[in-house]
Design a protein around this nucleic acid. Sequence first.
DNA 1: ACTTTAAATAAGTTTCTTCTAAAAAATATG
DNA 2: CATATTTTTTAGAAGAAACTTATTTAAAGT
Lengths: 219, 219
Amino acid sequence: MDKVSSTVEEYLKTILRLEEKFEIAKTSVLAEVLKVALGTVTNTVEKLEKQGLVIHEPYKGIKLTEKGRKIALEVLRRHRLSERLLTDLLGVDWSRAHEIACKLEHNLPNDILKNLEKVLGHPKTCPHGNPIPTSCGEIFEESSEPLLNLKQGDVGIIVKITEEEKEILEHLRKFKLIPGSLVKVLEKTSVDSLMKVKVEDVEAFLSFRLASIINVKKV
Amino acid sequence: MDKVSSTVEEYLKTILRLEEKFEIAKTSVLAEVLKVALGTVTNTVEKLEKQGLVIHEPYKGIKLTEKGRKIALEVLRRHRLSERLLTDLLGVDWSRAHEIACKLEHNLPNDILKNLEKVLGHPKTCPHGNPIPTSCGEIFEESSEPLLNLKQGDVGIIVKITEEEKEILEHLRKFKLIPGSLVKVLEKTSVDSLMKVKVEDVEAFLSFRLASIINVKKV
DNA sequence: ACTTTAAATAAGTTTCTTCTAAAAAATATG
DNA sequence: CATATTTTTTAGAAGAAACTTATTTAAAGT
């Protein structure tokens, strides 16, 4: 139950999210997400391994141990509840909540999260639709798939946005591409990797890249 | 308007509070409050001086420059609003709010403070009675004096607690020694440096040390 | 005025996080 | 299959923030 630094927490949280997405976290992706140099990641991961938080297979990737996963889930819980605090209670914009929460999350003691959760009315997800782990470390994930998977004519409800960079979120909101919105695929043109969709009666164009980070539930 | 580290913010905030209390901040006191070694303070203060944030007269003490004071007031504002957030919105205990806020304060962007302030109902003071600087950097201080100054038979209303260590606050609350309480001095015995007081109809004993950090307004 | 004591400083380490540049391994290409 | 390219790792160094110890300096007491 040793206390870890903010940096270590940030690494573990990111590894967890990458595992969910790609089964394994590669150092190159970690470096990109964390915005640090490649060598830095290798060095830091080596230390994480020494602390028994991850297992690193060189040239393959990184996986959390049970111990690491436990901490990562705690951090993710703090992160997503912080986001809710910011948007629901403090009126912070959807697009900024993520980056502020990345700092706050390391300075909220676990034991006040229960209070926070209650005040917020026990939200199931963060403002971007991603599930909030329970205090026991469980995640209840609503089934969904990337909007990109849908075919012409398919209709779905947006469940979550899986990347939370400020610029991306600002852009998405302009087109009402937010959890709960109804989306219909009008056209998929692979030539220029664009998707034409209708969101709540307004038409919009999406790059495949963006369509891949929006998860929907088909209806 | 260069951005400073959490450590620097913490130093500036502490120097401001010591200035308020003693006119000047001595390195030894700084070291004690910040819980770091004496040498560390000298080193750090030297850096602060290079950045034009303080003026250090060796063997005399440290004073904030205008630039340093401006930052310190911002930090203090963030600190005290964070404390209110913790106690009023998140149900955190009076005695723990201070130490948690010491971390949070460095990760709250200034521009969301206005929202926070509004949500909280524009409180004038922190939960311990100390004034919250305005967004313009002004402090409106209610006049008060240490309880220690009062003589036998004097009566006052507690205005603020000027030190916010967890153990101290836990102890004070047991005796209802909190802002707003009515205190009457029953006896002052200088032999053993104790003060007998009546707080809201209950009797209690206070060391001179504690009586010096409780500020009251005579009635 | 001299000595003692307390405070301030200087110098050398340690830990943490990061970087860059060079070497090694894995993957892709002709 | 051998070479080229990309990706990953290793190694060395740097900056920030802290500590300890030893020395210097100022203030206080006799």
